[in-house]
């Protein structure tokens, strides 16, 4: 029984193997959930074993999350306020992110393609780049005041460089023959940017967008430290001052989920726009 005659069609030989494995559609999500689930279990037992009162159990965080979303448990300033805070943070994250795209992509295209602009701007931008975004915090509070605009500015700064650098890289790595081909077919000037430079740099630009989007969510906490009353960052900061770690962790989880979902949207957009190039799919 152990030997399978080689004349058997491939499907017959593969069948017993397939039976051992779960269907791919179930296997993937199952594996993806198993690891964080194990972490939560570990978290629970570590808290229980050490008896610490500084870190809440997953259950306590779950209760806080419920209250944050639906209210009716603690009935305090944070009950059922997720909408307000999430919306405020999203506006700032996407505002800063959109601003970074609106400036970073065109500037990157120009720096990548026009030597004059590259020579003029590249040294300055390279000099400013190593400055941590957090170091801009005092200045941004002077420029934009103690409000949401300061947060938008910080998010913008953090998202700007990954977008700019990846766009420049994308433009510079375009096969020069594509420009030659476009030129001989009668394409020039600004049409060259829209029709050739931009789409050719798109895979690299999307790399930049995903990185920048991650930074944008990271920086929202810093940005909302500037004394704004709403936003997930301010919730976390309030949680810290009030020693309510369950609130801190709840805020962290909401940021994580929101960032994850937006990343999925960016990936879906990436896969649609780059449908011509399967190896660039996320």
């Amino acid at each position: 029984m152990s030997t399978i005659p080689s004349e058997l069609p491939a499907g017959a030989a593969a069948a017993p193997v397939r039976r051992l494995r779960l269907p791919q559609r179930v296997r993937g999500p199952l594996l993806a959930i198993a690891f964080p689930l194990a972490l939560v279990v570990l978290w629970h037992y570590l808290v229980v074993m050490t008896g610490t009162r500084l870190v809440p159990t997953p259950y306590q965080v779950g209760v806080m999350m419920w209250d944050f979303i639906f209210g009716g448990i603690h009935d305090d300033a944070f009950s059922a306020t997720i909408g307000t805070h999430l919306l405020a943070s999203m506006q700032r994250v996407y505002g800063g992110f959109a601003l970074a795209i609106a400036i970073g992509v065109p500037l990157g295209l120009l720096i990548g393609k026009v030597p004059l602009i590259r020579q003029m701007l590249d040294p300055t931008l390279s000099l400013l780049r190593p400055i941590p975004v957090t170091a801009w915090l005092p200045l941004s509070m002077i420029f934009f005041g103690l409000g949401p605009r300061s947060a938008v500015f910080l998010v913008f700064l953090g998202a700007f460089y990954p977008i700019l650098l990846n766009t420049i890289f994308g433009v510079r790595s375009v096969d020069i023959r594509l420009f030659e081909a476009a030129a001989m077919l009668g394409c020039d000037g600004s049409r060259m940017f829209r029709q050739i430079v931009l789409p050719a740099a798109m895979p690299s630009i999307f790399n930049g967008l995903r990185l920048a989007h991650g930074f944008a969510w990271i920086l929202i906490v810093v940005g909302e430290m500037t004394g704004v009353p709403t936003g997930l960052g301010s919730v976390i900061m309030d949680g810290r001052t009030l020693s309510r770690t369950d609130l801190v962790i709840t805020g962290m989880i909401v940021i994580g989920v929101a960032g994850f979902l937006t990343d999925r949207i960016i990936v879906a957009l990436n896969n649609w726009i780059l449908r011509w190039s399967p190896q660039h799919h996320g």
Partner: peptide
């Protein structure tokens, strides 16, 4: 556009 080049490596616009 009066002259058209056909490259060895095609140089088609991949997108």
């Amino acid at each position: 556009s009066d002259r058209g080049m056909v490259f060895q490596d095609y140089a088609l616009f991949p997108w």
